[in-house]
Amino acid sequence: MELSSAAIPAGSTIELAYAEPSCGGRNVSPDLRWSDAPEGAASYAVTCFDPDAPTGSGWWHWIAVDIPAAVTALDAGVQPPAREWVNDYGYSGYGGPCPPPGPAHRYVFTVHAVDVEHLPVPDDATSAACRFTLLAHAIDSASFTATFAVEG
């Protein structure tokens, strides 16, 4: 599979508009496009993760599942046709970068091809349970990484 974004090219620095409001951003979710999904992909999921967050376990910025198999792109700032889980900020949907001041953090955007149309996880499940179930049903994935920093 391949994943790309016109707004956030792989290896780029994420623009402020895509950052969390508490860091001066507008929390706009980026456009994403994917291709070359394997046969048997019944739906997709999109995640964004910061492995550099000082939590010992990173920081989840976005978990969207049950994106229909016919959808292979998301437009910037548009609510995806998906179920979205609570991110580590505590709200559902996309939460942009907002690391503590210091070195840039990496943000890993991933699309997962999933073998079921509807991920078998209850709407009130924790985001950890959703991610666990997602990985159990993922048949392929593609990622890219970009960075963001807050000067301080």
Rank of each mutant, 00 (worst) to 15 (best):
Y91H: 10
A42P: 05
A104S: 12
D115A: 11
W59P: 00
V108S: 06
A69E: 12
A73G: 10
G96W: 01
L135M: 14
S12F: 09
G90H: 04
A142C: 09
A19F: 02
V86G: 04
D140I: 00
C130P: 00
A41H: 00
S127A: 13
S43L: 01
A138F: 00
W34Q: 03
A125T: 01
A10I: 04
P54K: 13
P101A: 08
S141K: 10
T47I: 05
D140N: 13
P54A: 13
A37P: 07
S22T: 11
Y107S: 09
R83P: 03
T47C: 02
V121S: 09
A128I: 12
L32W: 01
R26Q: 15
D115L: 07
S29D: 11
D36P: 03
C48K: 02
P54D: 12
A146I: 06
S12K: 12
T110R: 09
L119P: 07
L134D: 12
G90M: 05
P120W: 07
A42E: 14
G152W: 06
G25L: 10
P54M: 05
F49D: 08
R106N: 09
A17R: 14
D36L: 08
R26Y: 08
P99K: 08
D66S: 08
E117W: 01
A17D: 12
I67V: 12
D140E: 14
S43T: 00
G11S: 11
C98F: 03
L135K: 11
V46Y: 00
V108L: 10
D75S: 13
A128C: 00
D52A: 13
N87D: 14
S127D: 12
E117T: 13
A104E: 06
D50W: 01
G56P: 03
S92P: 01
P101Y: 08
W34R: 01
I14Y: 02
T145A: 11
A41V: 09
A113D: 08
Y94Q: 07
A113Y: 05
L134C: 10
G24V: 06
Y18D: 03
C48V: 15
C130A: 15
G25Y: 09
A42G: 05
H112Q: 07
A125N: 01
C23Q: 05
W60D: 10
S127V: 10
D140S: 14
H112F: 15
E84D: 06
D66F: 06
A73I: 04
A113N: 03
T145K: 06
S141G: 06
V114K: 02
G56F: 11
G95W: 02
R131F: 14
Q79G: 04
C130G: 12
V65Q: 04
A104C: 05
A17W: 04
V108M: 06
V121N: 04
T72E: 10
S12H: 06
Y18T: 02
T126P: 02
I14G: 04
V116Q: 04
I139T: 02
G77W: 05
A73M: 07
P122M: 04
A17K: 14
S5I: 01
P99T: 05
W59A: 02
L135A: 13
T126S: 15
A53Q: 13
S92K: 13
P101M: 09
Y94G: 09
T47L: 01
